[in-house]
Design a protein around this nucleic acid. Structure first.
Lengths: 193, 193
DNA sequence: CAACTCATTGAGTACTTACTCATTAAACAC
DNA sequence: GTGTTTAATGAGTAAGTACTCAATGAGTTG
């Protein structure tokens, strides 16, 4: 049997991934690989044993993140067409991953195509549920007759705006926690007839 | 008289500034100084004769930009409280400087404090006029009774969202030109009672 | 126990960047 | 015309980065 080695290798990989998530959340994706090795208590070279390039490490993190978050958004279907509860759930999931999500909003522009697309896919996940609910409520004349994708973009634009300017709106605090109800209230009152 | 030298020095400075504006608009603020020297047809060292550090070059560009754009926004007062025309004018000014403005939206987060503040000041300029009009229309019950600053953030969030995702919404084209009327229409119909 | 495999190491390499400074030549003062 | 000032030059420096690879030693196998 050749188990102990495999196990240790897997553990090292996980340590690197966890360290990278932390370091990138705090310092951004241009943080040096040396900082990740430090955080993971692993030699610098070890990173390149597990990931041939930094880009492959980014991609791995993004795919993990996408899976995690998609799993949490799947439960959105439970809420049916209750827009308020969908919005609440949306923000709650983002709060859970606020640091990393904020980094993505800030830096996705500079990530390579593949990573960018993964991030866009995450947003599509929410949009599916929200658009469905919006269309339903528009047809029921509860929500204004505005193209639903523009409503969705307004919502995401608002949230990302607050995330990007977090230092301004809520210094040393979670913007999403602080403004959750204000954001939802504002958006709801805007879209309603 | 010692004129020719001063004139040539000033011209070189302007050439560097113009080149930097172009290069940064196209490649972002992390573009190497060598690219700017190339574009300006000036030696690499020349840049540091006129600007002690790259940061001082960034700041100079931002201050120029702020002055230009503020001058154009000052005419906003002519429009009084006509929100639609204010929004139109806002987008028109941004269209005029779209490439550089887009870069700022994308990268302001990483610029040093002073540059970031200059960018924030630009946004305040618009907010003054727009908030005034919004408050007026709220008191006249034409616009919904939502905190005006949240309405402003919704508007700016929407525009910045479209700018950030320009490649998605309008590949190889100006997002603002393409979506100007849609954005204004959407926002107006949302805020109205 | 001996031979071998392989995850891990960290000093070293190759590259890119902002910034320097001795040198040059054009503009200027007399 | 001669000497001085100074804008401009570009090869050179220092610092930081991702990535490599020969050496190590713990794990594994017979």
């Amino acid at each position: 049997m050749t188990e102990k080695r495999q196990l240790q290798k897997a553990q090292t990989r996980e340590r690197i991934i966890a360290a990278a998530l932390k370091v990138y959340s705090e310092q951004g994706f241009s943080a040096p690989t040396a900082a990740i090795a430090d955080e993971a208590n692993v030699s610098h070279g070890s990173i390149f044993v597990h990931f041939p390039t930094v880009e492959s490490l980014w991609l791995c993190l993004l795919e993990n993140f996408s899976q995690d978050i998609n799993a949490e958004f799947n439960s959105l279907s439970e809420y049916g067409n209750d827009i308020e509860r969908l919005l609440e759930r949306h923000i709650d999931v983002l709060i859970k991953h606020e640091d990393f999500y904020k980094r993505l909003v800030k830096e996705a522009v500079y990530l390579p195509e593949e990573e960018k697309n993964t991030f866009i896919a995450i947003q599509s996940m929410v949009s599916i549920h929200l658009l469905q609910a919006l269309e339903r409520e528009i047809s029921r004349k509860v929500v204004k007759n505005v193209p639903p994708h523009m409503l969705f973009n307004t919502w995401l634009g608002l949230i990302h705006y607050y995330l990007l300017n977090g230092d301004l709106f809520a210094p040393q605090d979670s913007v999403l926690k602080r403004y959750k109800s204000a954001l939802i209230e504002c958006f709801l009152s805007l879209i309603k007839q």
